[in-house]
Amino acid sequence: MARTPRLIAAASGGGHWIQLLRLRDAFQGFDTAFVSMFDSYRPMVEGHRYYTVPDASRFDLKGFLPVFWRALKIVARERPRAIVTTGSAPMLSFILLGRLTGARTLWIDSIANSERMSSSGRLARKLAHRTISQWPEVAAAEGVDCWGSVL
């Protein structure tokens, strides 16, 4: 008997997390584990596995080492078939590890990036199986798809 495919849904805090939560219906049919940065978010996804990762900034590359190490442990434990993230930069670790482990990966650039793709999104475009923008004009300029907005 085939087990339900696993999915990691990851986002940093604030608007990235809210956008990810609005996608929950799309995760039907998957055994979903959620990842974010704050333990206080755990009750929002009750009934699902929940993990935290530390924050990191693109301005402090050393900060990515603890994020990557934690992401490696999570991906090894979950063995996801797919990884979906609404960003931000620390979630690039999940995209990279997903590629390395054979999981399908999707980066959804934040709705806040209405004039150009985020710097993390531009990097994700090179790593993820699919990168999308929530703005048609940005998608056209960046050469990615637009599937609409999460709002």
Rank of each mutant, 00 (worst) to 15 (best):
S110T: 13
C146R: 00
G148R: 08
L72I: 04
S110N: 08
G121D: 11
W17D: 01
W17C: 05
A140P: 01
M37S: 10
T4P: 09
W17Q: 01
F68S: 08
F34Y: 15
E137G: 11
L100R: 13
V53C: 06
R49C: 03
R42I: 05
R24S: 11
T101E: 13
G143K: 13
H129I: 05
M1Q: 14
R24P: 00
Y51I: 02
D145H: 09
L7I: 10
R81K: 15
R77P: 01
L72M: 13
N113C: 15
L61P: 06
P54F: 05
T101Y: 07
F68E: 10
A76C: 03
R77D: 14
I111V: 14
K62Q: 15
I18R: 03
L151R: 05
V45N: 07
G143C: 08
W107E: 04
W135D: 12
R130I: 00
I108M: 13
V67G: 07
L97Q: 10
D25F: 11
S12N: 12
F64K: 15
A10G: 05
G13K: 02
A124M: 07
T52S: 04
W69L: 14
R49K: 02
F64C: 14
R42V: 10
L7M: 11
V138E: 04
L72P: 08
I132R: 09
V53A: 08
Q19I: 01
M44V: 01
R3S: 11
L127N: 08
L23P: 05
M37C: 08
D109E: 13
I74F: 02
G47V: 07
H129K: 05
G148N: 13
R99Y: 01
S12P: 02
D60K: 06
I18H: 09
A103W: 03
V138L: 00
P90E: 12
M91L: 12
R58T: 10
D145C: 06
G29M: 01
G14I: 10
W135L: 04
L123F: 13
